[in-house]
Design a protein around this nucleic acid. Structure first.
Lengths: 148, 148
DNA sequence: AAATAATTGTTGACTGCGCAACTAAACCGT
DNA sequence: ACGGTTTAGTTGCGCAGTCAACAATTATTT
C-alpha cells in the first residue's frame, strides 16, 4: 500500500472535522429542544422501522455503532424513561427484545423535525444534487473496501 | 428550509456509519501496536506544527474538538506519560503552555505510520483521485455553510 | 486607585461507553 | 442423554469527556 497523498490527507482532515462539528451542532440543537440525543434516536428509529416495532438486542448491536454492553446500558436508560420496553424472547430464552412504546414513538416524532433540520442545514443544504450522489458513491466505495 | 430528500438522508446515514467504522478501526490498530490514541495524537501533532512546539491551552481547545476541561485532563494524562509538559506563561500569569517533549515527538513519529496506513486503507484507497477531490469540495461546502 | 467584569485553566460530580468476566440458555458431537 | 462449546445479554470496573462552580489573574469602568 502506497503513501497517503497530500489531497487524501486534506480530505481526511476535513472529513473528521466536518463530522465532529455537525454532530456537535445537531446534538446541541436536540438538547436545546429537550429532545432525545442522537444515540437514543438511532435506537428508536431502528425499532420503529422493524416489524412489530421490536428487535432482538443483538440485532440492535449490529445496526448501531455500540458494543453489546453499550446497548444494554442505553436500553436501561430508555426503559427508565419509558421509551422502550424489554420483552423476553419465547423462542430463545437467553435473549430479549427491545420494544418501542407509544411514548417512545411520540418522542421519536418530536425529535425528528429537529434532527432533520440539522441534517438539512449543516450537511445537505450546502451540497448540489450531484455532490450528494458523489458522497453516496464515495462512502459506498469505502464500505466495500472495508469488507475485503 | 425544505425537507430532507431520500438521497440526502442516504448520504447522511452512510456518512455517520462510515465515520464510526473507520475511526473505530484505526483506534483499534493504534491500540494493537501500543501507540497513542487518536485524540492524543491530535494534540501532539498540533504542538509539533506550532512554533516552538508549544501552544497555549486555549489555542489547543480551539483546534481540537474538546472543551477546556477536556484539554486539561487530556494534558494531565500526556504529562503523566511524559509526552508534553506544562510551562506557565510569563506574559499572562493565569495561563500556561503545553510543550512537546522529545519523548512526545518520538511517540508521534511512531504512531504516524499506523495512522497513515489506516487512513489509506480504510478511507483513501477505495477512492479515485476524482472522488477524493469531490470529497474535499463537498466538505468545504459544508464548512462554508456553517459559517453563515 | 478601587470596584467590577471578563478570561484562563482546574476541579468535583456525573454520564456514557468499552473491556473482560460472568450467568443462563442453546447447540453439538459423541 | 451428557459434557463441552458457543451465544445472548448483564455487570463491575475504569477511562474519557462534559458541565457548572471556582481561584487566580488581567482588563475595563468609574
Amino acid at each position: 500500500m502506497e503513501r497517503v497523498t497530500e489531497s487524501e490527507l486534506a480530505a481526511w482532515r476535513l472529513f473528521i472535522k466536518t463530522y465532529a462539528r455537525i454532530i456537535e451542532q445537531i446534538e446541541r440543537d436536540l438538547a436545546e429542544q429537550k429532545r432525545v440525543p442522537l444515540t437514543a434516536y438511532d435506537v428508536l428509529i431502528a425499532l420503529f422501522e422493524a416489524p412489530g416495532h421490536k428487535l432482538r438486542l443483538g440485532e440492535l448491536t449490529q445496526k448501531m455503532v455500540l458494543t453489546k454492553s453499550g446497548i444494554t446500558r442505553l436500553l436501561d436508560r430508555l426503559e427508565r424513561e419509558g421509551l422502550v420496553q424489554r420483552e423476553k424472547s419465547e423462542e430463545d430464552r437467553r435473549g430479549a427484545y427491545a420494544v418501542l412504546t407509544p411514548e417512545g414513538e411520540q418522542q421519536l416524532r418530536k425529535a425528528w423535525p429537529v434532527y432533520a433540520r440539522g441534517i438539512k442545514q449543516y450537511f445537505a443544504a450546502p451540497l448540489s444534487e450531484e455532490q450528494t450522489r458523489q458522497l453516496i458513491a464515495a462512502f459506498e466505495a469505502m464500505q466495500k473496501g472495508q469488507e475485503l
